[in-house]
Design a protein around this nucleic acid. Sequence first.
DNA 1: GATTGAACTGAACGCTTGTTCAGATAGACA
DNA 2: TGTCTATCTGAACAAGCGTTCAGTTCAATC
Lengths: 195, 195
Amino acid sequence: MARKTGSHADITGPRVQDAALRLFSRHGYAAVSMRQIAGEVGLQAGALYLYTKDKQSLLFELLRVHMQSLLSAWADEPAADDPVQRLEDFVRFHIRFHVDRADEVFISYMELRNLEPENFAVIEGLRRDYETVLEEILRAGQESGQFTVPDTKLSTMAIIAMLTGVNTWYRESGRLSRDRIERIYWNLVRRLVKA
Amino acid sequence: MARKTGSHADITGPRVQDAALRLFSRHGYAAVSMRQIAGEVGLQAGALYLYTKDKQSLLFELLRVHMQSLLSAWADEPAADDPVQRLEDFVRFHIRFHVDRADEVFISYMELRNLEPENFAVIEGLRRDYETVLEEILRAGQESGQFTVPDTKLSTMAIIAMLTGVNTWYRESGRLSRDRIERIYWNLVRRLVKA
DNA sequence: GATTGAACTGAACGCTTGTTCAGATAGACA
DNA sequence: TGTCTATCTGAACAAGCGTTCAGTTCAATC
């Protein structure tokens, strides 16, 4: 049923999502009102309900789309055979993807508790899928004898926390270029797995 | 002007703080009402204002006390001369302290944006003080030739993010004891700094 | 020019919010 | 027994909340 030409709604819908994303990330889900979101798009609050079922769906859809595009972006990356190369790819991919979507990442970590239980379960599942990606790289590297880690599960969590931590201090105008940062972190991760 | 015997207020005050801590950590600052906090302590909302200036101060005091007790707890640790030993002490201390205060840590990361600017500046300053602790350990280890890191500042942030990440998955009843976890993370950190 | 329908407004719904305050209560001290 | 004071209640305040909906607007279609 997709129309060929973009209707007004096809343009306003994403604008609502964008405003919600920006405001949720800045002030938090609970602290942002539907009237604020509407105001940001130049609408009255009631009009938002043409584009979303309710406030909760606005948050859930944001997180769901973010996590799914994270997973599918990784799936689109060329898959190296060598675990060492694969790990470097992952490190650089993770930093790049997360730094480019600071608002989404922030919300993903902050607002999980504001999701209704069944919505929470969906997002949590997607996150676990992503963690499994790294865990299996580490496992492959260990089996090939190229990595040595004290505990695969813990090392997975440690590396992801370390990489995601970049978001807390990274600024576009900062001291280091993104490529330089990726290189340094890859250096650190390589030491972690003794590769 | 401290009284010798504990008055009622000396008991109720902390109970209010505890309830606020638990509720803020569970549902988020904005999502928790003064009436909920009061209910948790068995009071009406109005009575809370005998113990706090307003809701904002409740949050600010929580964070301020937490950060200051973090800094003073570290100051009370015996200070090893050897940078390697000092770094191990820091790693174990950080994990222990943070895991034992999961609620405070959670709030510290989540609710910074709900602080009024001047309050935010205070907490941010305390956090920077704590980061400096680790940064100077790394610097000392580099000067003594015992550590090698690609970038002192980034390594500081990477290690802190990695260690604090434990809080996202640690459960009292989990697979690994706290001491085992401390050991594994110290192992990982030692690799990071090539000690 | 008439009709349709998507897009939107503006008011209203019942409810909750943080905060204030006059008044009630009750334990401690004289 | 009477006074005092710390403690707390319960109602009130203005403001804001998410959500609904009857009615308006206006560009596209016939």
